[in-house]
């Protein structure tokens, strides 16, 4: 029982990372019609940004405030990946709107290029980021079930990110314009909304949150140039299961994939657990082909 609760909790923290990755993907994949295979590499870039910030911090800042580096790292990870996303959108992605299959190939190429770039700079071996000391503590709940501070922090991070996105999308003018452009592009433009700017901004923000996901991953283990690959498939599944266009969809999807995986694994074995979660996804899509939560949206045709 304790062990199961432990698994469940660990699953929740994986869910949180998936959620952070899926938030961006839900927009680019679901609403802009781009299959962004390079999204995993945004996660990787975020993780490496955290690594770089940590090293700089270690070298420059006094030792007693070392722990504070993590907040700087998160901010930097967001900014750096958002910037990379922005550049990619301007140079390449914007020519691919409405061409899902083409975008798959192109972004796959981008993903390989980004991996190799990082490999050239940082070397092929994994690097590790040490988490702040105050997160190393575990909270003993009962028996063998202890919540690790790191994983708890990841959960909080995901929750705060969701909240930030919700506020941005539903309370600001820019968010309103983005939602309008997603629902009916031509009409939004006819009212004076610069839709190209909206695309750029949404893509950058989506990428930025992948960066934060990357930052969170550094807690769970060492990172390497291919770390994004291990999350991209699950992130896509999250989006497909949850449905696009609503945050609640991504949350549900992430919960199913993130918690369901470890739960099945607990009762069976690692590989069988994976198979079972895929079966669940297939069954869900039989009944709700557009995901559990979906809104009507128009693909971008131009």
């Amino acid at each position: 029982m304790d062990l199961f609760l432990m698994q469940l909790f660990n699953g929740l923290s994986v869910s949180s990372i998936l959620l952070l990755a899926a938030l961006g993907l839900a927009i680019t994949f679901g609403l802009m019609g781009i299959i962004n295979m390079a999204h995993g590499e945004f996660i990787m870039i975020g993780a490496y940004t955290a690594y770089v910030v940590q090293n700089i911090w270690k070298a420059v800042m006094p030792e007693n405030i070392f722990d504070a580096y993590f907040f700087a790292a998160m901010l930097a990870a967001f900014i750096v990946t958002a910037a990379v996303g922005l550049i990619l959108e301007r140079l390449i992605i914007r020519h691919l709107y409405g061409r899902a299959i083409d975008s798959l190939l192109v972004t796959w190429g981008i993903s390989l290029a980004l991996q190799q770039t990082v490999r050239s700079i940082f070397g092929p071996t994994n690097v590790s980021v040490s988490a702040p000391a105050f997160l190393d503590k575990n909270i003993q709940v009962m028996g063998m079930f202890a919540m690790s501070g790191k994983r708890l922090f990841i959960l909080v991070m995901a929750a705060v990110s969701c909240l930030l996105i919700a506020v941005f999308m539903y309370k600001t003018k820019q968010g309103r314009n983005i939602r309008a452009a997603m629902q009916n592009r031509e009409m939004a433009a006819s009212l004076g909304v610069n839709t190209a700017k909206c695309d750029m901004l949404t893509f950058a923000i989506g990428s930025g949150f992948a960066g934060i996901a990357g930052c969170a991953i550094t807690f769970l283990g060492p990172i390497g140039p291919t770390i994004g690959q291990s999350y991209i498939v699950d992130a896509f599944m999250t989006v497909v299961v949850g449905g696009v266009g609503r945050i609640i969809g991504s949350i549900t999807g992430a919960a199913i994939i993130g918690v369901g995986g470890p739960t099945f694994e607990f009762f069976t074995s690692a590989s069988l657990g994976k198979v079972m979660i895929f079966i669940v996804v297939i069954i869900i899509l039989q009944f709700r082909p557009k995901g559990i939560f979906s809104i009507r949206s128009r693909a971008l045709d131009d």
């Binding site: 314009n177 939602r179 309008a180 629902q183 009409m187 939004a188 009212l191 909304v193």
Partner: peptide, 15 residues
């Protein structure tokens, strides 16, 4: 915009 409120629709017109 079906998913946006009447108010949001009007606010968009002011863009």
């Amino acid at each position: 915009f079906p998913q946006l409120t009447v108010k949001e629709n009007i606010l968009l017109g002011m863009e």
